[in-house]
Design a protein around this nucleic acid. Structure first.
Length: 257
DNA sequence: ATGGTTGAATGTCAA
């Protein structure tokens, strides 16, 4: 199984990039974030024509997550399943090939101390609880998406200067630890403990990709039963250098199943 | 350089 995560920064604006990437890479499952479109305006036909089934959790203008899958999608669930958090479209989960798959768009947080930062902290705590409520670490579970946290010093450029800023802050690390302590493994970092690769480059930083000024904030985590089945994790740097790219690129895990 | 770029939307916010 090839499973991929991609923050599209608008699925409609990114349609050419997405379709050509699907044709070249033929993933089985794609988890997309920041689709930025309501469900009834989602370009469904283009994906169905390529053999993909869709599960959508969209909203107008912002956020939005979805699955594309060539394997049947079952048990689709939207959001946290309660009223505790605002109705942002940031979570979608489903069962595919007997694996529980959770796709999230973690809040950005804007700046440390802002209202959006407070929301990010609460969201991460709520997600840690969701994992324990709904899933078992002994079962095959995949959590993937835009995590909006660079968890270690090699996951962002100039990490010593970034430490304490949004995306690389101890309060984010501790909350991500609580999530990972459920029983998750960061598949890329597990396979490549010292590699420096990024998945996101800020549009507002001139020539950020060429200058290697990026962040590894798009992750694929798995529970214990799946760790040994992950044969590779690939970050598609070339796709970020094409015309009209997203500010993120594709991250793909290949599982032996 | 408190800028820069992109996308939703058509003001200006979010990232």
């Amino acid at each position: 199984m090839k499973i991929c995560t991609y923050n599209a920064a608008s699925v409609r604006a990114r349609l050419p990039r997405l379709l050509e990437w699907l044709d070249e890479n033929e993933p089985d499952v794609v988890a997309i974030q920041e689709t930025k479109v309501e469900n009834d305006k989602f370009p469904v036909e283009e994906f169905e024509a390529r053999g993909y089934e869709l599960a959508l959790n969209g909203q107008k203008s912002w956020n939005g997550v979805c699955f594309l899958s060539r394997l049947p999608i079952d048990n689709v669930q939207i959001g946290f399943g309660d009223e505790l958090m605002p109705q942002d479209a940031r979570v979608i989960s489903a069962t595919i090939s007997g694996i529980e798959i959770i796709n999230t768009y973690v809040p950005n947080g804007n700046t440390v101390g802002s209202d959006k930062w407070v929301y990010k902290m609460a969201w991460l705590e709520r997600f840690a609880r969701l994992l324990r409520e709904r899933y078992s670490p002994q079962a095959p579970v995949i959590w993937l998406g835009d995590i909006n946290i660079a968890p270690t010093g090699i996951d962002v450029y100039e990490s010593d200067r970034k430490l304490g800023m949004v995306g690389h802050h101890p309060d984010e690390f501790s909350r991500l630890d609580r999530i990972v302590d459920f029983g998750l493994t960061d598949t890329y970092r597990h396979l490549y403990p010292t590699e420096v690769e990024y998945t996101f480059w800020d549009f507002t930083v001139p020539r950020a990709v060429d200058r290697k000024l990026g962040w590894r904030i798009d992750h694929i985590y798995v529970t214990e039963p799946l760790v040994g089945l992950v044969k590779d994790v690939e970050i598609d740097l070339a796709a970020r250098k094409l015309e009209k790219p997203s500010d993120h690129t594709f991250v793909t895990a290949r599982l032996d199943l």
